[in-house]
């Protein structure tokens, strides 16, 4: 069986930070500690004068919400993502999904 990971369809990430606060709540992390961090990119692009993107980056603290997984629940970030642009699943399946969701990244944990 393939390893689990996260697919982040960042084209739709609106930078709302629900993933980050959901993670902090779930793991009872204090401010300053978080399993996923969102970065904003504002830049000149090829076909438009300005592009704005956000990218959630799973940090060393991400455990893919193993406790929730054992209860049959999605990771806290995936569950609460307001743009519903994050998926959890086996890497093999996520790679297939990725082919039809351009501008996405795959996260494979340690």
């Amino acid at each position: 069986m393939s390893k689990n990971g996260l697919l982040i369809h960042y084209d739709y990430c609106t930078g709302c930070q629900s993933c980050a606060v959901a993670c902090q709540q779930e793991h009872d992390f204090p401010a300053g500690k978080c399993g996923i961090e969102v970065t904003e990119y504002v830049y000149e692009a090829i076909r438009k004068p300005v592009a704005i993107d956000f990218l959630p980056f799973p940090t060393e603290l991400c455990d893919l919400c193993i406790n929730r997984y054992q209860q049959g629940e999605k990771p806290a970030c995936v569950k609460h993502c307001q743009a519903a642009c994050m998926s959890f699943g086996s890497l093999t399946e996520l790679v297939q999904q990725m082919e039809i969701t351009p501008r996405s990244v795959l996260f494979s944990p340690r």
Partner: peptide, 12 residues
């Protein structure tokens, strides 16, 4: 549909 904003997730 199951989603939440950061403000409600910080309710505690």
């Amino acid at each position: 549909q199951g989603r939440s904003c950061p403000r409600v997730l910080a309710l505690t």
